[in-house]
């Protein structure tokens, strides 16, 4: 574990030490992610100017919603987004084989090297939006319990997205076109861009229990603003945990298949 952390710190240091032109590009990448995530909210301003907006969500509430999704995306991006890429690299140069003996260490190792500093831009944008939402709605409206639950649900949201990355990584060493899969799975996250209240019952069920992407935006935001019952908390958390177990199992199965195929 300590060795892995050192590896992580070293590669981080290397990235930061690279030369000026690359530093400029790095700054631009982070800034780009920051500013790009503010464009949607600007559109939201216009929408709320011309209409009554989304039923059940006032303007600052929806900004808080968008910020929550941005925050979850940002954290996932910052911590894990490169994980499938690291796996593909390791498979290509053969270094993956030495990890086959220890499946859990492999996951840990690949995960720890999955970071991408660009994610900071997204996290920053998310914080700005959530902050705006909170202060405009009024600090008095929030309870400590809701804030804590909010943070927990955000982590669940990140966990869900991590599962998607795990699936993509698993498929990559079964030699499936991972880029297409990446587009597909994250394309499905479009359903998380808006409160699930706008969808019909069938979709709400799918987005909560089957492909529980609503955990990345709707449930944390709703909890922060209006609270959540213990029962509701359990029945939205369980599908995510289930999803995690399934994707972990899929990873282990895929590695076994890879190993038996001669690797």
């Amino acid at each position: 574990m300590g060795k892995n952390f050192k590896l992580w710190m070293n590669s981080l240091a290397l990235e930061l030490a690279s030369d000026m032109a690359y530093k400029l590009n790095f700054f631009l990448k982070v800034f780009a992610l920051f500013i790009n995530n503010l464009l949607g909210p600007i559109a939201t301003v216009f929408i709320y100017q011309h209409s009554a907006g989304i039923p059940g969500w006032s303007f600052p509430e929806f900004i808080l919603f968008t910020g929550t999704f941005t925050l979850v995306n940002g954290i996932t991006h910052f911590l894990f987004i490169m994980m499938p890429v690291r796996v593909i690299e390791a498979v290509r140069d053969g270094s993956f084989d030495k990890f086959l003996v220890q499946p859990f260490n492999t996951i840990l190792n690949m995960t720890l090297r999955g970071w991408d500093l660009d994610g900071l831009g997204e996290i920053l944008a998310g914080l700005v939006l959530v902050g705006y939402g909170i202060f405009t709605v009024g600090l008095a409206e929030f309870t400590l319990l809701n804030v804590v639950l909010y943070i927990i649900l955000i982590l669940f949201g990140v966990l869900f997205q991590y599962c998607i990355l795990l699936i993509i990584a698993s498929c990559s060493f079964l030699f499936v076109r991972s880029y297409a899969l990446f587009e597909l799975l994250f394309g499905m996250e479009k359903f998380a861009r808006y409160p699930i209240d706008v969808f019909n019952m069938a979709l709400r069920i799918v987005l909560t229990f089957i492909f529980p992407v609503a955990i990345a935006s709707h449930y944390p935001a709703k909890t922060l603003l209006r609270g959540i019952s213990g029962l509701e908390f359990i029945y939205i958390a369980l599908p995510v945990i289930g999803f995690f177990i399934i994707s972990l199992g899929f990873w282990i199965w895929a590695m076994k298949k890879y190993r038996s195929a001669g690797g």
Binding site: A21, Y22, L24, N25, L28, K29, F31, A32, L39, A43
Partner: peptide, 18 residues
């Protein structure tokens, strides 16, 4: 000039879209 223009491209895409 800049060699790597990743960040620039990201912004260009988003702004053109918007």
């Amino acid at each position: 000039w800049l060699i790597r223009i990743h960040g620039l491209r990201r912004m260009k895409r988003a702004f053109l879209l918007f």
